[in-house]
């Protein structure tokens, strides 16, 4: 059995959505970008080809709430950090029966029972005073952790990253 926290590939497959799409931006399919920046769990950023983020997930195979691990990470990688509010991070535990037969069997072998705990960070699009709608974008070109979150007007397809000034795609 794996050590506490690590999410094995079988459980990652069971957790992942099959058809994530970008809503209210480009309607193109989204990809789950797996990042190795946060141990021991599984950090995944769901973003469209234009860099618009729908949700960031961090999962650990553990009954413990991993919010305290994700919160400082996203704050450290978001410009400005004040965009990351504690109330926008939400916990969900997955027990097995809701993950399909293979994952259910896999999780049932572990005693005492251990759920997969996922924390979601979702920043909903918001309006600034002039009425412009802003939303969260991501750039993957930074350092070893290769991720930078920032906000830009939601009608831009690939806004430039404020750190590297390169367009997301």
């Amino acid at each position: 059995m794996r050590r506490t926290g690590v999410v094995p590939p079988l459980l990652r497959r069971a957790l992942a959505p099959r058809t994530p799409h970008c809503h209210r931006h480009c309607d193109r399919p989204q990809r789950g970008h797996n990042l190795r920046a946060l141990a021991p769990g599984w950090l995944c950023v769901y973003a469209c080809p234009g860099g618009a983020v729908s949700v960031i997930t961090y999962s650990e195979w553990s009954n413990a709430d991993p919010t305290a691990r994700l919160l400082p990470f996203v704050r450290a990688h978001t410009t400005p950090a004040t965009l990351v509010r504690r109330r926008d991070l939400r916990l969900a535990r997955r027990h097995g029966p809701e993950l399909g037969a293979e994952a259910e069997r896999y999780l049932a072998r572990v005693h005492p029972p251990r759920a997969v705990s996922t924390v979601y960070w979702r920043l909903y699009p918001f309006k600034k005073k002039d009425g412009t709608v802003f939303r969260l974008f991501v750039c993957f070109r930074h350092g070893t952790e290769r991720v930078q979150f920032f906000v830009a007007p939601g009608n831009i397809m690939s806004p430039p990253c404020p750190k590297c000034r390169v367009r997301t795609r």
Binding site: A16, P17, R18, T19, P20, H21, Y46, S54, V55, T57, R90, A92, G96, P97, E98, L99, G100, A101, E104, R105, A108, Y120, R122
Partner: peptide, 20 residues
């Protein structure tokens, strides 16, 4: 599942046909 509604639908379907 915060990812998308179809993922929550799949979770319900899996729960309803689960060994549990």
């Amino acid at each position: 599942f915060s990812e998308e509604v179809p993922r929550t639908a799949r979770a319900w379907a899996d729960l309803l046909r689960s060994a549990w």
